[in-house]
Design a protein around this nucleic acid. Structure first.
Lengths: 198, 198
DNA sequence: TGCGTAAAACCAACTAGTTAGTTAGAAACG
DNA sequence: CGTTTCTAACTAACTAGTTGGTTTTACGCA
């Protein structure tokens, strides 16, 4: 089909909504504020997206797709994946915030990690890497993935212990990525087993 | 001072507010709903806590104190600490939700992990364990702590990859705790250095 | 090229309900 | 009898969502 004239309007709404939802969450976002920021009438917003939650869903899908596509999973190089995920989270902090808010506010979005088709593929790849002796087989694939993602996002906006800010020096990012790589490498090293307490 | 007569009222407000803030966040919480759930008039709530944010602050401080006190930090047994933190998060999911929401909504609460006096003590303990050769010294203490907490809370309500529900079977918790212990143990093992990519 | 028309895009103003926060006074208490 | 604790009722502002009508666009046709 020919590119619709109003696609630009739709796009501006999505951009404004992304910023507002990321900044304030679903309950905290304001429909009027989004429409004003987009320079679009509120009625248009409702015509396109139905209601506030429909708008959030559209925003969420947009970014979720962009991120799963941009970070290829490599079960035979878990540290590398973690670092790429760290970079992606730094580059697009809105997605992390969006996902965290969606989770806290209990809106149904197919879980961007496990439980999606992409997630299932990751789990299978991990299982295979375990059989190949590249990843500690004493940890179930789903737990490997959960820990891996948690580690990569440790400094993200949803991380409770620390927070990356866009203005962080490059040396901070380098230091964290080295730490992340080292820790991931050790955490899932094959043969580690369950050493301390038998 | 003598125990104030109205401490019970205050307490009921705090309890109701904890539930509501944990469930809906700051923007999503409703003052009327909290007052009704506590069986207390709204004006009382304002007399005690000033405004909505003041109430949130009181709730947050209450739980933050309770949790940092309940999980003793052991730099020479990082896996043990992680498992205890996991248990605490399972037992009191509200605190994790509260902290996550506070962070997302940008309210100033002295960071419950780093940057508090308790956090500084943890960092010092980690540094000492590194000197003693018990913890990988190639990762800075603040990064050790950030990763550690992220791992322990990987399945918590703020974890993007997976979610613990109160109804989870005990075997799930056991499995996760074994995985957590193994991963933490490997992640910070002294001498691991930066093996794969030199 | 110019015209007519139907659909799509747009907008200001409005509604009905909800929200945080206030007030003036009644009840309980020591 | 004065102080503290409590309450019902109120307000002013804000909220998501709607309405009815105007402007712009797409396109067949002469």
């Amino acid at each position: 089909m020919s590119p619709r004239k109003s696609d630009a309007t739709r796009r501006r709404l999505l951009d404004a909504a992304t910023a507002d939802f990321a900044a304030h969450g679903i309950a905290g976002a304001r429909v009027d504020r989004i429409a004003a920021a987009a320079g679009v009438n509120k009625a248009q917003l409702y015509a396109y997206f139905g209601d506030k939650l429909g708008l959030f869903g559209a925003v969420f899908r947009l970014h979720a797709d962009a991120v799963v596509d941009s970070v290829p999973f490599t079960a035979d190089d878990l540290p590398g994946y973690a670092v790429r995920l760290y970079d992606a989270a730094v580059a697009r902090p809105e997605l992390v915030r969006l996902a965290t808010w969606a989770k806290l506010e209990g809106v149904a979005t197919d879980n961007l990690a496990t439980e999606s088709s992409a997630g299932a593929a990751k789990l299978r790849a991990i299982a295979e890497a375990q059989r190949a002796g590249q990843v500690d087989a004493s940890i179930e694939p789903r737990d490997v993935l959960a820990l891996l993602i948690a580690m990569a996002l440790a400094w993200s906006p949803s991380g409770l212990a620390a927070a990356t800010t866009p203005g962080d020096a490059a040396t901070d990012h380098d230091r964290r990525k080295r730490a992340l790589s080292t820790a991931v490498s050790g955490a899932f090293r094959a043969g580690a087993g369950n050493p301390p307490q038998g």
